[in-house]
Nucleic acid binder design. Structure first.
Lengths: 248, 248
DNA sequence: ACCTGAACACCGTTCAAGT
DNA sequence: ACCTGAACACCGTTCAAGT
């Protein structure tokens, strides 16, 4: 039962389970060193800056030596997505709603600081020690609300998804691809769109664009927008808690 | 004002604005043909199956000829993410809540059918004709609720994000990377996790895992889970509408 | 047992040359 | 003006050989 349902090798290593190597020279590296180097490269040059050769050079080793520690580059990206997360905020003594808000904001901030996470995260299930610590803390914060474990997990995944979406939208507004074309903010986004939208085919949207939906001072990136959607979710959670008879 | 705030070239082409070419031989291709070929490849072999050479071969042209129509592979992916969306459901005569639910589900279904969208979508702002048609229809469905344009856009982006998250989670449960390791469903996911979780460091989560959170009959992929989070959101929207004094 | 260096198959993109 | 073919710089990954 222990051997049958084993985790993927990278995940095992992310949890510190290095294979017990006995004979021969001692390893010069471990997964944490490699992951840290890769994260530094990604922070500096984006995901395109992460090549096996580049990571290897940074830890002072030949490119091919990395394959002693990971099976593939994909595995490396999986480990990066977990390791980039800092420790979650401490839920001790906090009311659930305040903690969930802080938790979600902190998770979004990770992605604003490390935009490359957006390019790997969504398809990777959170099985590493860091991401699961976040999950554990959120579950703790919901003690006393009457929500069961399954509901808590669902709340966590919904909030994680929201953080991801918000970060992606915020990032898109400043996307270099659009700056290249002379569009630098929400303001120009709307103006450019107006040129192309047929009012007959897109009646509501083109009216909204002419009305200036995308021309707000800060537009998409506005903190108000983050709170808007977040409170939508938290209101929903609050209703559920009320139904379960938990305390607010 | 028309020239200054121009859209990126790909986006212009997505809107059918092919450059007016006069002299010389007529083009053999257009962006739609190229995009359709790329989508077929991605559906068949995943995003890894989409190479410039492969797409070119499928439309019967040398690899380098594609650069007459797009500036880079990234542009091609942008066009694919828009073109893969079918027409949105028709909102005519539907109550807002029912339409939003159908809209969100349909959007998630796109990603379940074309999982490769998950690997490009989150960083690409929706500026193509298809994605913006979806936005227009959702805005139409909210007529009479009292929500303003900005709020409607925020609702749309939040629901889109939710659809994306749900699809990603559902997809992760069946991720080949985990099947490779002998983990085929939610059941094994939980068992594998139990081996590695330290109950002292992860008290709530390890209790939940022992309690079988991840061992439900269908687990993550359950339709119940999709509706759970969706209703959280729609309850939030409903509260907002009530505050605005709109009709349900 | 760990690491290296050479090698392989493949990739996106450029550019000059053809029509 | 469109398309081709050769070429370039780079990539992830393998494998035999060294210690």
């Amino acid at each position: 039962m222990d051997q049958d349902r084993s985790l993927p090798p990278v995940v095992e290593r992310m949890w510190g389970r290095e294979p017990a190597s006995r004979r021969g020279p001692r390893p010069r590296l471990d997964l944490a060193m490699i992951t840290a180097a890769a994260i530094e490269l990604a922070d500096a040059d984006g995901i395109a800056g992460v090549s096996m050769a580049g990571v290897a050079a940074r830890v002072g080793v030949a490119a091919t030596a990395l394959y002693r520690y990971i099976d593939s580059k994909e595995d490396l990206l999986t480990a990066m997505a977990d390791a980039v997360a800092p420790l979650p905020p401490d839920p001790a003594g906090q009311p659930w709603r305040g903690y969930l808000a802080a938790w979600t904001r902190a998770q979004r901030d990770i992605m604003l600081e490390h935009p490359w996470v957006l390019t790997i995260s969504p398809l990777v299930p959170p099985m590493g020690p860091r991401r699961l610590l976040w999950l554990d803390r959120l579950m703790a914060a919901l003690d006393g609300t009457g929500l069961d474990d399954g509901e808590r997990v669902n709340v966590a995944s919904t909030l994680t998804g929201y953080a991801l979406t918000d970060a992606a939208v915020a990032f898109a507004a400043g996307d270099p691809a659009y700056e290249k074309a002379g569009i630098s903010g929400a303001d120009d986004f709307g103006a450019a769109l107006a040129d192309v939208l047929d009012p007959e085919a897109y009646p509501h949207l083109s009216a909204a664009v002419r009305g200036g939906v995308f021309s707000g001072a800060v537009g998409w990136v506005d903190d108000e927008d983050f709170l808007f959607g977040l409170n939508l979710l938290l209101d929903g959670v609050e209703q559920l808690i009320a139904r379960r008879g938990g305390v607010g």
